Amino acid sequence: MLLVSAPILGVPEKAALSQVIDSGWLTMGDRVREFEQAFASMHGARDCVAVGSCTAALHLLLHALGIGPGDEVLVPSLTFVATANAVLYVGATPVFVDIESVDVPLISVAEAEARCTTRTKAVILVHFAGYLPDREQWQRFARLRGLHIIEDAAHAPGLREVGTFGAAAAFSFYGNKNMTTAEGGAVIARDPDLLDRVRLARGHGMTTGTHQRLNSRTPQYDVTMLGFNYRMDEMRAAIGLVQLQNLQEWNEIRRIIAVLYRRLIADRCPAIVIPFSEPRTSAYHIMPIVLPRYASRQDVIDELRTQGIQTTIHYPPVHQMTFYRERFPGVSLPQTEDFAERELTIPLHPQITSAAAESVVAALAAALKTGALKAGAQRGTAA
């Protein structure tokens, strides 16, 4: 099966894990700190905080910014559910905002303006598929309203622009991301006080960690806030240090494959829309396409699967999921819903060859041809 995403793991990662096991120190030690410094340096930041997941990163950021009950946070519905969940974790209310268009499936500034109230305290910008929104536009929007900008950068590691939009950025190192630590995440914040609050809350609000106390004169510590258990362990940090060395090269390979896909699809499947037709900065995390209205997405999925090609969907809209639909009834986001009904994600990762990309597009073309014939037959029967 040609997978939508696939981690690249090998001998260097195994060696790094063995070194951690041989050291006898498994959590929150020198490797976590080294990984934090290396990841921050790649993004032009002074420091960062490594955590257990991107969900944890988002929760910690909202908590550290003092967002809570009675507050509202603008979020896209075209995202993984964790983006909205984190808002609920702090007792605030997620306010779902439509995307710009099928071509630009990023949260819309105009729609965000329409949904702002006196209770709005922040906006979470999701860098969908690895593509960045207009930074200056969003900074003007937030500055005029006194809002915090939080970047959900799960799809965009390795871009130096990430973490410069506003208060902070949250990253994911899940197994299907551009680089992985299996589970894991990180926070980049330019304000050192904000980063300190995140770091403190990561480990139960404790003033020192176990590794720090090992190397100090006293085992005493204090707890100065209500915190969480969102630490990263040494094994994940060790994998991350190896992966980080390859991230820029892997992102470049993703870019090359994405360019090839665009050329092949334009030639063989012109009815398919590929979002982000205008150039913009990206980490090329996934390859979303939008099928023509006459095509049955399930038929296309089934046809590609018979050819040994996995596909998936990014994303079922959060506002239409049972949990959120019951709590926030009546939400209508036409652009998001149209995009989500026709979006299909095809394989994109550094192990994709040009021949594999050509086979994916050939299978797409065949599936669409079958779909067009079916649609024509149905129209003829109806006539």
Score class of each variant (00 low, 15 high):
101 S>N: 01
324 Y>N: 04
2 L>I: 14
228 F>I: 09
105 P>Q: 04
119 R>A: 07
231 R>W: 08
185 G>F: 09
203 G>V: 10
147 L>R: 15
306 T>I: 04
364 L>T: 13
1 M>F: 11
301 I>D: 14
289 I>H: 03
18 S>D: 01
202 R>W: 05
17 L>I: 08
245 Q>S: 05
304 L>M: 08
14 K>L: 06
59 H>G: 00
327 R>A: 12
241 L>Y: 14
310 Q>L: 02
193 D>R: 08
364 L>D: 15
195 L>I: 12
204 H>C: 01
142 A>F: 05
280 R>E: 11
81 V>I: 14
110 A>Q: 15
44 G>Y: 10
216 S>D: 12
12 P>R: 05
297 R>E: 07
266 A>L: 03
353 T>N: 01
223 V>Y: 12
16 A>P: 00
318 V>T: 08
103 D>P: 03
22 D>H: 00
59 H>A: 00
376 G>A: 15
135 R>D: 01
115 R>I: 11
159 L>R: 07
111 E>W: 05
291 L>A: 00
184 G>D: 04
167 A>H: 06
178 N>W: 04
320 Q>K: 15
339 F>C: 02
173 F>C: 01
23 S>V: 09
136 E>D: 13
324 Y>L: 13
119 R>N: 06
364 L>C: 14
249 E>S: 11
36 E>V: 01
68 G>V: 02
171 F>Y: 11
235 M>D: 08
302 D>W: 01
92 A>N: 08
350 P>E: 09
284 Y>I: 11
250 W>A: 02
111 E>D: 13
355 A>E: 13
365 A>K: 03
111 E>A: 06
319 H>M: 08
9 L>V: 07
105 P>G: 10
144 L>V: 02
177 K>N: 07
188 I>R: 11
331 V>R: 14
252 E>P: 03
91 G>T: 01
277 S>E: 10
147 L>H: 13
71 D>W: 11
337 E>Q: 13
5 S>T: 13
134 D>H: 09
117 T>M: 13
279 P>M: 06
168 A>D: 08
107 I>K: 08
255 R>V: 09
235 M>Q: 14
370 T>N: 09
368 L>D: 00
199 R>M: 00
85 N>T: 05
144 L>M: 08
345 T>L: 02
293 R>S: 05
242 V>N: 01
268 R>I: 00
291 L>T: 04
111 E>M: 00
14 K>P: 00
375 A>W: 15
193 D>T: 13
169 A>F: 06
258 A>F: 12
251 N>W: 05
